[in-house]
Design a protein around this nucleic acid. Structure first.
Length: 542
RNA sequence: GCGCCCGUAGCUCAAUUGGAUAGAGCAACGGCCUUCUAAGCCGUAGGUUAGUGGUUCGAGUCCACUCGGGCGUACCA
């Protein structure tokens, strides 16, 4: 429908050459009496032309050439909106497109041939993934899916560091727990990782090595084994959410292949560094940031900024057209430094999009649970998945805008899992499957011969919603807002459920019944496409 | 103190990116199954969009200030 309006406006450009001065924005009015589509172009042009918007609007309508079989009427309303009303038979044509394209309906080739990378989760292997990581994981994976749907070739990457102080602490923690298995009087520091999983790892080591590690001086063997076990655990958790990565990038490799030194040298050549109090500082103030920051500590070790910049340099060297970083709000302050550093090295920071999501507040027994991996008062993502299932977890994390804070009441999630909106969507899908099974028994087949019969209020509303899927998807991908898809699907499901209540298939006149079957199949395809994008399953039965 | 994010119905959140009368789901109340899945549908009730001022044809959305919450503000990552 939007395409057609755009087409007739292009033709209009030849007659009224001022049309090109304003963008043609088409929106769906909230109220049906304001038409199926609406544009504010007359209001936008009003200032430039120094004419009242309603006058411009009527001039546009007079000169607009359109097919009466497609558009029923056009009128001017309010301060100067131009409202379009479509012919029901034209609206129904969307079914043909959907049945034609099926699982590809909604895809576009807008970014065909472009490479994108989404970096997400990126938790260091110091413990199991928490519910907090869940939002990151689902957000990243869904954005990756969206980008694929608009044509990008997407790589999913997990960046981690297994060398820092945290990891040393992990090794110490595991070693101490291991020693405790032989001598319970060994003390366990409060500084150490408190989680049960540390004991599990220690027991695993005991099974593997018996008492051979008791006199081991170094913590390396403990650290290494802990890392392996934890990483396996993390990967399994992610797989339970149907999330897999193309690449795990170890920060250590940046040191080993000289990337860190290379970046450091470049900064020095550009005279962007200086020494102060035995540390090396980066002149971030010259790059537009608030203050200079240390990149190499007086101990000789780099701070996180240097490897982060070096890491992003490797991304640019790998030739991505778009790079996405998914961060929690606790990292919000760090990325401007990294982008400034990238820019100073001659790379275009516009290609990097940083998505900051707000934290998830977990409520348990009505109280806020503070998350800390070290203190171990976290709720693991695994526990959550086991409790409510993959579909609910994925849907829950994606249904809200990432910029809004989210409350997750655990008790409510368990108790009300039946009332979760994800079931509402899945139910619509299963219902359609069921109807289709029934119609087969009645020897009724879908037909696109008489789509014009789909002219009731309920059928038309459903059809119009089907029209908007590709556009909605495109907008969601372009703005990195996957929650739009969830909102779209909820509306679609609601319109289907209303249609179901009002319009019967079996028992209707045959031509109408067959057109309606085509309609519900089209609806099911769109539901399934949307759900698969969100990584939520579309059941045949419920 | 300073910086970033946020504040919308009792609760959890939308609002097509500045559009027309701010919408859903829970929770509450009332109705609809001898015909395709009642995990559904229909109705009632619920709002000074935290507050004040500004920008313009038009503001929940943009700007300023105030109040309230989250996250930062390291030679931690």
């Amino acid at each position: 429908m939007k395409k057609y309006i755009r087409k007739i406006f292009e033709n209009l450009n030849h007659k009224l050459n001022y049309i090109g001065n304003a963008e043609l924005i088409l929106t769906v009015p909230q109220h049906t009496s304001h038409g199926d589509l609406s544009t504010n172009i007359a209001m936008l042009l009003s200032k430039k032309l120094r004419k009242p918007p309603r006058e411009i609007a009527s001039e546009i309508i007079e000169n607009l050439e359109y097919d009466n079989n497609k558009i029923k009427s056009i009128n001017i309303a309010g301060p100067g909106f131009i409202n379009f009303f479509f012919q029901p038979s034209f609206v129904a044509q969307i079914i043909k497109n959907i049945l034609d394209e099926r699982e590809n309906f909604g895809r576009s080739n807008e970014f065909e041939g472009k490479k994108a990378q989404v970096e997400f989760v990126s938790a260091n292997p110091t413990g199991p993934l928490t519910v907090g990581h869940g939002r990151n994981a689902v957000l990243g994976d869904t954005i990756a899916n969206l980008l694929e749907w608009v044509g990008y070739n997407v790589e999913r990457e997990y960046y981690f560091n297994n060398a820092g102080r945290q990891m040393k602490m992990l090794g110490e923690s595991v070693k101490t727990r291991y020693l405790q298995l032989f001598d319970p009087t060994v003390e366990f520091s409060e500084e150490y990782y408190q989680g049960e999983y540390i004991i599990d790892i220690a027991e695993e080591l005991k099974r593997k090595f018996a008492d051979k590690l008791i006199h081991e001086k170094s913590i390396d063997v403990f650290k290494q084994n802990a890392e392996e076990i934890i990483f396996e655990n993390i990967k399994t958790t992610l797989e339970n959410l149907d999330i897999t990565f193309d690449n795990f990038f170890n920060e250590k490799s940046l040191y080993e292949n000289g990337n860190i030194d290379k970046v450091l040298k470049l900064f020095e050549e550009k005279k962007l560094t200086y020494k102060k109090e035995n540390a090396l500082w980066l002149k971030l103030t010259e790059l537009g940031q608030e203050q200079d920051k240390v990149i190499i500590k007086s101990s000789g070790e780099p701070t996180y900024r240097l490897p982060d910049i070096a890491y992003h340099v490797t991304k640019f060297e790998r030739g991505y057209d778009l790079m996405i970083d998914i961060f929690g709000s606790d990292h919000a302050a760090t990325y401007p430094d990294v982008l400034a550093g990238i820019k100073a090295l001659g790379y275009n920071p516009e290609k990097v999009k940083v998505i900051i999501y707000q934290f998830v507040t977990i409520l348990k027994n009505g109280e806020v649970v503070k998350m800390s991996t070290r203190k171990a008062n976290f709720i693991t993502l695994d526990e959550l998945i086991e409790e409510v299932g993959k579909d609910v977890v994925r849907y829950f994390f994606i249904m809200r805008n990432h910029s809004s804070h989210m409350n997750f009441d655990l008790d409510l999630a368990k108790k009300q899992s039946d009332e979760n909106p994800v079931f509402y969507l899945q139910y619509a899908h299963a219902r359609i499957s069921s109807i289709i099974r029934m119609t087969r028994e009645e020897k009724l087949n879908p037909s696109i011969e008489n789509l014009a019969l789909l002219n009731t209020f309920y059928e038309q509303n459903l059809l119009k919603q089907l029209h908007f899927f590709p556009e909605e998807l495109y907008q969601a991908a372009k703005n990195f807002e996957p929650h739009k898809i969830a909102n779209y699907l909820e509306t679609l499901a609601a319109l289907f459920h209303k249609f179901y209540t009002e319009c019967r298939i079996i028992g209707s006149e045959k031509k109408l019944a067959e057109a309606r079957i085509a309609l519900i199949i089209a609806t099911q395809i769109v539901l399934r496409n949307g759900l698969s994008l969100l990584g939520v399953s579309a059941p045949e039965k419920m």
